[in-house]
């Protein structure tokens, strides 16, 4: 489930508000126009699809793998484990990991083995 929006990393672009298919986030204050960070308003609606993380340009979100329970993990713990932005890097959506966009090796797994 979505656990946290890092207040230090978030620039208030509010892309997560738009892209979350379950409408979990809610803008605050002036929203995007004023660079105000959104809040997690409907946490239990989160379907743990990780797509908000994939689309966050600032690596400011963390989705815990637990689909049913809130873990309460802290920003410090996520940062210490190097987990901010880890999904975005894996799919090649960061500048430094572009080669991962075409790294899909499924064709090897489908071959007879």
């Amino acid at each position: 489930m979505i656990e946290l929006i890092s207040p230090t990393r978030c620039t208030g672009c509010n892309i997560c508000v738009s892209v979350c298919p379950m409408d979990v986030f809610q803008p605050t204050g002036g929203g995007r126009a004023e660079g105000a960070a959104p809040v997690i308003a409907r946490q239990s609606d989160c379907q743990t699809c990780f797509l908000c993380e994939a689309h966050c340009p600032d690596d400011a979100l963390y989705v815990a793998p637990d689909a049913e329970t809130v873990t309460g993990i802290t920003e410090e713990a996520v940062a210490a484990a190097g987990l901010f932005g880890s999904y975005r890097r894996a799919i090649g959506w960061t500048a430094a990991h572009r080669e991962n966009r075409s790294a899909d090796q499924t064709f090897r797994l489908l071959a007879p083995h």
Partner: peptide, 20 residues
């Protein structure tokens, strides 16, 4: 020798494990 290919085939499959 297949582990790396599996990770590259399905990055999201490994998210829950890496995070847990």
């Amino acid at each position: 020798e297949l582990w790396a290919a599996m990770r590259q085939a399905q990055p999201n499959f490994f998210l829950p494990f890496d995070r847990a």
